[in-house]
Amino acid sequence: MAGKATRDGFGVGVLEAGKKNGNVVVLDADVGSSTRVKNFMKEFPERFFEMGIAESNMVGVAAGLATCGKIPFASTFAVFASSRVADQLRNSVAYPKLNVKIAATHAGITVGPDGATHQSVEDIAILRSIPNFTVIVPCDYYEAKAAVEAAAEYNGPVYLRLTRGAVPFVFDEKYQFEWGKVVPLRDGQDVTIFATGVMVDQALKAAEILETEGISAHVVNVHTLKPLDLEGVIRAAQKTGAVITAEEHSIYGGLGSAIAEVLAENASLPMQRVGIKDTFGESGEPDELMEKYGLVDKNIVEAVHVVLKRK
């Protein structure tokens, strides 16, 4: 498998952003070697702040820096960058709409052996419910890098959800990140699969399996969960008349919920969600966990079978 972790895309993207703009600063909470901010630290030591294991303060300090025109990227593991600091994100960053970027690495169950304490299954739901936050979940290294650079140019709070483990390349270095737009990856007529993050690759694999069964799947990468590209989602859903969502996140509050909300109000269509079924994860290898929690291509295929019966 040719691929790289999206956290690596962040590491390179933030370094590039730092070269382009002297206001970009990075904050770390003693996980910098894991979040890939080391290169930025080496290149721009004066713009790198090690805040220690004190995430609440890190978010508040980022907010303060942003009031002075800095573009802070505060980075830690997704569990500690979301639920742990939800109030700080809400009151110190989102409400005053400060230009703070949260780079949340090690998201989802693909964190693997560290187990449930380190596997965020609810972070998208939390961030999506906070006004003023943009929520981006890149699907591969190149999209992560491009999204980070785009986030640095956008003025406002952004939550970037990144993975620990390698994910296969979906794009290449020529990829242009289009802010806020869904990205159709494969054209099809029978069913639309909306996928985000690591599930984009699984969705593409599922589409190939479905093709052998004579089912043509339309695969759409949703990198921005909020604000959601309403027009793009409705168009892609209506194109086939049946919808699947796939995410490495709880089926409550994430991509599945977001798409369901849009369809309920705009185009009632049969829909099935593939995602984590309101449960915590556990220790294990990422691929074992993806299998056990129903997050692989065959789970998407099964969901397609179900939804097509309801079409």
């Binding site: 980022a62 303060g64 009031t67 700080q88």
Partner: peptide, 19 residues
């Protein structure tokens, strides 16, 4: 700075001082 949730303003002040 926007404040109201206690304990947070002083962190922002640290950020402003760092800037």
């Amino acid at each position: 700075m926007t404040t109201g949730s206690l304990g947070q303003g002083i962190s922002a002040a640290v950020g402003i001082a760092l800037a």
